[in-house]
Each structure stands twice: as C-alpha cells, then as structure tokens.
C-alpha cells in the first residue's frame, strides 16, 4: 500500500466568474521512503498540489489517502491533527516565529500535539542535533544566518517524526553554497529513511531526487531518473 494515494484529484478556483483548474484530474502514488521533487513553472499548480498533499487544503473533487486514512472530507480540525502528526513543512522563507528562540520554535509542533514539557525539550534538542545547531538553541531566529534558519525549520519539521516532509523551494532564499548544504541535508534525511518531497521550479535542484513529478497546467508529466533511482537504491542497501 502506498503512503499517499491521489485519485482523480481536481482543484478548481473561481476568480471573477472564471474557472481556474489549478489541478486537473491528478492521480499519483507516493511510496514510503521516496525522495521526490515536484517541479513546474510558477502557476503550473505545483503549490496547489503540495498544499493538498500537505493537508493544508482540500481538493474540489477526487480522493486522497494518506497513510491509510481518507482525508478529502476531513474537517479543518482533523486536517490540523494530520499536519501535526504526519507531515513536516519546510518553507522558502523559513517561517520561524521571531519571538521564540530556536528551541521553542522546534518545540512548537509538539506544543500542539500535547507533548509534556520535558519530552518536548528532549526531542527538540535531539532534532537540533541532527541539523548541527544544538549550540544555538537559545538564539533568536533573527540572530541566525539564512542557512541556519532553514536548518532550524528542518529540525522543526522533523521533530514530530512525520511520515512525509514537504519542502517548498527550500533553497529559494539561500545562496548557492548554503542551498547546496540544505539539499545535502535532505539527501541525508532521505537516506535515513524519511519520505521527502521537494517542490521547486529549478530543474537543477530537482535533479538530486530519483523521482521527479513535473506539473504543467495542472497535469502531471512524470519523469523518473532511472540512474539516480538505481543509485539511490544501491546506496540504501549499504
């Protein structure tokens, strides 16, 4: 059974009486442990796809199954719960809360899932260790560089051990070197078994993932890089 099953999903917006099909009858399967990129030019519907996959939005029609649960008809409350437990987000603009320090930012998802303060602290420190930022836990986001902020955001995405990690243009706001480091971090996560989905407009970034889903005008044109996919699998057997 796939981790995510999208069947005939459409998302239709109405803007000024005009019907816009952001997603047009999309079907998609994502297996556990995959490293996928969703690419497409702006306006192609890739963000809409990510929002629907990430349970931030509901489709107009079609069904979604995430980790065995049907979620297309879920209430906002249930969606929030699923986002909290099963999904981690990394955004282009980091989206850390400026008033909280690094540790508190990482603790935030656990606050909403009702984890006890002691366990929150332990798990947040462990997550920060994974991104090599445990010595910055008392700093404010504004005192960190862009790359460090993005690593905090990744730690926050990881801290509730989600089934899927979504990264929306995670390198879009970083210089090339830092961006490269962040991508390496995602590769590392993928090798360690996480399901990672990168959303980007940049084919070069998409090139690091074995599976690429290209979106144009709300439809999927999928390409799989067999060589990278094979390498990936070989790498994991070690």
């Amino acid at each position: 059974m796939s981790l995510v099953e999208l069947r005939n999903v459409s998302k239709i917006y109405h803007l000024g009486g005009e019907e816009i099909r952001a997603l047009d009858n999309v079907s998609l399967d994502i297996e556990s442990g995959e490293f996928i990129s969703i690419i497409g030019p702006s306006g192609s519907g890739k963000s809409t796809l990510m929002h629907i996959l990430g349970c931030l939005d509901s489709p107009t029609s079609g069904t979604i199954k995430l980790d065995g649960t049907m979620i297309q008809g879920a209430s906002p409350r249930e969606l929030a719960r699923i986002r909290n437990r099963k999904i981690g987000f990394v955004f282009q603009f980091f989206n850390l809360l400026p008033k909280l320090n690094v540790l508190q930012n990482v603790e935030l998802p656990m606050v909403y899932s009702g984890v006890s303060a002691r366990e929150r602290h332990e798990r947040a420190v462990a997550a920060l260790k994974m991104v090599d930022l445990e010595n910055r836990s008392k700093h404010r986001p504004s005192q960190l560089s862009g790359g460090q902020q993005q690593r905090v955001a990744i730690a926050r995405a990881l801290v509730n051990s989600p089934k899927i990690i979504f990264a929306d243009e995670p390198t879009g706001n970083l210089d090339t070197n830092t961006g490269e480091a962040i991508l390496q971090l995602f590769c590392k996560l993928s090798r360690e078994g996480s399901t990672v989905i990168l959303v980007t407009h940049d084919p070069e970034i998409a090139a690091v993932t074995p599976r690429r889903i290209e979106i144009r005008d709300g439809k999927i044109a999928e390409k799989v890089d067999a060589r990278l996919a094979g390498l990936d699998r070989v790498a994991r057997t070690f």
């Binding site: 990430g54 929030a80 909290n84 987000f89 809360l97």
Partner: peptide
C-alpha cells in the same frame, strides 16, 4: 505558521 505545524 502555527496552523501549518498543526495548531487547530
């Protein structure tokens, strides 16, 4: 942000 990370 809070909603994205799971705030109801």
């Amino acid at each position: 942000i809070c909603k994205a990370v799971g705030a109801t």
